[in-house]
Amino acid sequence: MADLDLVNRDPNNINDHIKVAFEDVLGEPDGAHTIDCVWINSYKCFNCWKSLCYTISTLLCGICIAAEWGCEFASIAFYHVWVITPCFKVLELNCGICQKLYGLCIHCCLDPFFEACGLCFAAFKK
């Protein structure tokens, strides 16, 4: 098992699109300011509830959802190893034979015709 980084939990930045701060959601333009204590407490309340709801949701569901995703990706890996990749190999082998057969038929049937046409047109040299 690789070392788990408990500080940077999104090293590949796959969830940058959901970084949401108070300032990203609420903002008051000039001329429409609430009193400072309301703004300060709104900031604290927003961050508290965002953190609390996320913590409770992950506590109640996180392990089960992680287990489900683990099963999902294991299933995908299983199908790729045991079904999809062998199917592609079968197709590759069968299509290779069909390609050889098609090429053989084209060369046998059409090459003489085009060679004859070439000989006919070769007589029209300047």
Rank of each mutant, 00 (worst) to 15 (best):
I63C: 04
S51V: 03
I14E: 11
S51E: 04
E92H: 03
Y102T: 14
A74H: 03
T34F: 15
N13I: 04
H17S: 08
L52W: 14
H33T: 03
V38L: 05
C61V: 03
E23G: 09
L6D: 03
H107L: 13
A32M: 15
D3E: 10
A77G: 05
N94C: 11
E72V: 12
L91Q: 02
L52V: 12
L91G: 01
V90M: 02
T55P: 03
N12S: 02
C37R: 09
P86R: 01
P112A: 04
I97A: 01
L26C: 15
T85R: 01
C48N: 09
N12Y: 09
I40A: 09
R9C: 12
C108I: 15
C61Y: 14
A116V: 11
D24A: 05
C37Y: 14
D36M: 06
C117D: 13
P86S: 01
C64V: 02
C64D: 10
C98R: 07
V38N: 00
V81E: 15
W82H: 08
K19V: 13
C95F: 12
Y43S: 04
L26E: 08
F73K: 08
K19A: 08
F113C: 06
L60P: 02
F88Y: 12
I18E: 08
G70D: 14
C120E: 12
C117L: 15
I14D: 12
L93H: 10
Y79R: 15
P29C: 10
C53M: 14
I18D: 07
K19L: 09
D16N: 07
I84L: 15
I65P: 00
T58M: 06
V81A: 11
N94Y: 08
A32P: 04
V90G: 00
F114T: 00
D5R: 04
E23W: 02
A67F: 05
F121Q: 10
C117Q: 15
R9L: 08
C37S: 15
H17N: 12
A32L: 13
D111H: 00
E28P: 00
L110F: 15
V90C: 02
C105H: 04
C108S: 09
P86W: 00
C117R: 10
D111Y: 01
L93N: 12
I35F: 02
K126P: 12
L104S: 05
F124C: 12
I84P: 02
K126G: 06
I106M: 10
E115I: 11
S42N: 06
C108Y: 14
V7C: 04
E92L: 02
L52D: 10
L101Q: 05
F113S: 01
T55V: 07
